[in-house]
Nucleic acid binder design. Sequence first.
DNA 1: AGACGTTTTAAACTAGCGTTTGAGCCACCA
DNA 2: TGGTGGCTCAAACGCTAGTTTAAAACGTCT
Lengths: 219, 219
Amino acid sequence: MSQSDTVQRILDAAEVLFAQKGFAETSLRAITSRAGVNLAAVNYHFGSKEALIQAVFERYLTPFCQALDAKLEELEAETRNGGDVPLEKLFTVASRLALGSHGDEPRRAMIFFRLSGQAYSQPQDHLRAWLRDHYGPVFRRFLALLRRAVPDVPPMELFWRVHFSLGAVIFTLSGMESLQAISKKDFNQSVTAAHITQQLLPFVVGGIVGAGPARERQA
Amino acid sequence: MSQSDTVQRILDAAEVLFAQKGFAETSLRAITSRAGVNLAAVNYHFGSKEALIQAVFERYLTPFCQALDAKLEELEAETRNGGDVPLEKLFTVASRLALGSHGDEPRRAMIFFRLSGQAYSQPQDHLRAWLRDHYGPVFRRFLALLRRAVPDVPPMELFWRVHFSLGAVIFTLSGMESLQAISKKDFNQSVTAAHITQQLLPFVVGGIVGAGPARERQA
DNA sequence: AGACGTTTTAAACTAGCGTTTGAGCCACCA
DNA sequence: TGGTGGCTCAAACGCTAGTTTAAAACGTCT
């Protein structure tokens, strides 16, 4: 092979370890050891640990965002001659792509949500900035469709509610394992990741629509 | 003074720095330097960096949980002779206590939410376990009142939705600064922390009630 | 005043980090 | 065949981390 698979092995190992223990707590030695490659390979192939972190995000996010963008394009076309995309459909599409656009099991997605959580709680400005610059457009496109789906919600409130939703998703899927443990203890019942994401939908939709004066609750 | 204020100065500095840069990225040297105390003071008074982290959480959470517990007791008593506490009131009470039970400005609360976010994305099992063991009861008490407020939502769904809400709150308040910046850029309008927490309420209430078959949305 | 327990101090220690180096390996092409 | 370029490797570098040490300073009692 002209391109060795060292790069992929490093990315695989880094992805798991970063999600498991965070960026700062994961040493290059731990990564290269798990990947079965030499310590210097990271700096040789990526340049620095920082660049490796970005590469991990890029490998996951780029296919996802491309898929989402294409799907949004499709949805936009459908509504070109009147009608809006329903709220539920927008989130179902996004969730399905996030969980399954990588061929492999949703475990990959779970790992990635942990990474996102770490990226957000991290003070590394440039990571957040890089994410925003690279994947902001598709986010705004999603937001535009959303705005049409819930015209009653003022744009700024909608903006915040989307971020609240993002928080609910990332936080939950970040802490999945411990939450599953608690749930099992309290309800004597195992819960799958698919089950949780299924529960997320009505919560997010309910939250986006909101409990304001625009809506009355049923008794 | 028989007990020097070194301990307090260290806690103050650690609280801010941990929230700003995370646990791993904050060195004891940075903390002691900001506190104006000697490097060895941390290990002398707390034993280790790990113990210092716990102490930071304890100093904030203990008064909050005591206040919340007392308030919940009060609410339970009110409903002893019939009636339930409305959903909105439960969250308003919790939010008001979280933001203002420390006398000082809500900035303290903001700092603490960042800490919570870091604690959750952190893989430090023992921190999470310690939080659960110490503050689990008051959480369960809150959950019990909640269950009575929304009897239509099945207990397990409610459990998950509460965690979704927690995620929305912690995530948002963790990333406040960057979110405020984005908001300012997109809407040309500054947003205060109070404004955001105000927006959180209808989102959380809407999410908890959910968008399931139990409720219809208004056109 | 002097002795004693507590706290502070400066300095050192050990360990682990990200990164760099330069020699070695190996496939490929002239 | 001999060299050339991409890649791997063990070793070392410089640095910063948390922690420990032992002496100095302090406050408080007899």
